[in-house]
């Protein structure tokens, strides 16, 4: 999978400089009288595979970027919600937590506060110039999407964790579970369920917003469309087609996520293991069960 995508990146970089082909096409000349639908058909027939590759890169970046971003966001969100105020916690631990928390806060602010398009330029060209790290455009794109999503997810995760009833944490503490066991077994499962809609939303946003990666020449859907338009000079049909494809992608993703949510909620009902009556053994003899008296 990754290998093909890397190859795609190379192809994209090549076609970006594809002026010879373009002139050839223009020279061949488009015979007049082609209708809008003729153009659509022509684009699908001759450049359908380019668009499909674009879909592949877009979905790869959006899905992988969202997954990595969620993992990042979970990590950051969990660290930022570690309670640091228990007096018995050792001082170095408290200082480490404060520092980590500050660093992570800066990360979140920087990546939420700057456009992804600018981040792409900085990461792709900046890393190359400053550290001689020359990333493939798809890798660079993935990096940017992941880090960006991570910053948004960090806040979403924090909100998700904080929205879980504090009574849940107290009950877990009361049975002697530590912070991590509580997080893993009790809080995160509930927080993740709570943030699922927001996470799906991030995924859908990423499907659309990976289009800004065309500034570094990542061969995602929008870049492929731009390339085709550069060859055919048929801006309206090309982008209408591209828009339609984006819509199909986002719409079907939204539906799938909704199914997933319903699946995770489990069945609405449960079956009784044996009988539903309260056994007599728990009732006190003499029939005095301390029925509630008014106060």
């Amino acid at each position: 999978m990754t290998a093909t995508i890397m190859a795609l990146g190379a192809q994209a970089a090549e076609t970006r400089l594809g002026s010879p082909r373009r002139t050839a096409m223009v020279a061949a000349g488009a015979p007049g009288g082609r209708t809008f639908f003729d153009w659509i058909v022509l684009i699908v027939q001759d450049y359908g595979s380019w668009l499909l590759k674009g879909v592949g890169v877009t979905m790869f970046l959006a899905l992988t970027g969202t997954i990595i971003g969620v993992v990042l966001g979970l990590g950051v969100g969990v660290v930022r919600t570690i309670p640091s105020d228990r007096p018995s916690a050792r001082l170095p631990k408290r200082i480490a937590l404060k520092v980590a928390s500050a660093v992570l806060a800066v990360y979140v602010e920087v990546f939420r506060g700057t456009p992804m398009m600018v981040q792409a330029m900085v990461v792709y060209y900046g890393l190359g110039m400053a550290f001689q790290i020359n990333l493939n455009v798809v890798t660079a794109g993935l990096l940017v999407v992941s880090i960006n999503t991570g910053a948004y997810m960090a806040e979403i995760v924090r909100g998700g964790i904080e929205s879980v009833d504090p009574g849940q944490t107290e009950a877990a503490k009361a049975v002697g579970m530590g912070h991590w066991a509580t997080m893993r077994g009790i809080i995160l499962p509930q927080a993740i369920r709570n943030i699922l809609p927001a996470t799906g939303n991030e995924f859908v946003i990423n499907i659309k917003d990976t289009s800004v990666l065309m500034v570094i020449g990542t061969s995602e859907l929008f870049f492929q469309g731009k390339t085709i338009d550069g060859i055919l000079y048929q801006t309206f049909p090309v982008y209408l087609l591209v828009a339609a494809i984006y819509l199909v992608l986002t719409f079907s993703t939204t539906r799938l996520l909704r199914l997933l949510e319903r699946h995770l909620d489990g069945p609405e009902s449960f079956t009784l293991a044996t009988s539903s009556t309260v056994p007599e053994s728990i009732l006190l003899p003499g029939g005095d069960n301390y029925g509630h008296r008014g106060r």
């Binding site: 009574g167 849940q168 002697g176 579970m177 009790i186 499962p189």
Partner: peptide
């Protein structure tokens, strides 16, 4: 020391049995 709360505070993500199992497994 077990604790029983006014608001029950059962673990909402777990079924009845797992509510009674998780502490034994994770803490004991």
């Amino acid at each position: 020391l077990g604790m029983v709360f006014q608001q029950f505070n059962l673990f909402n993500n777990l079924n009845v049995l797992d509510n009674c199992v998780i502490g034994q497994v994770r803490a004991l």
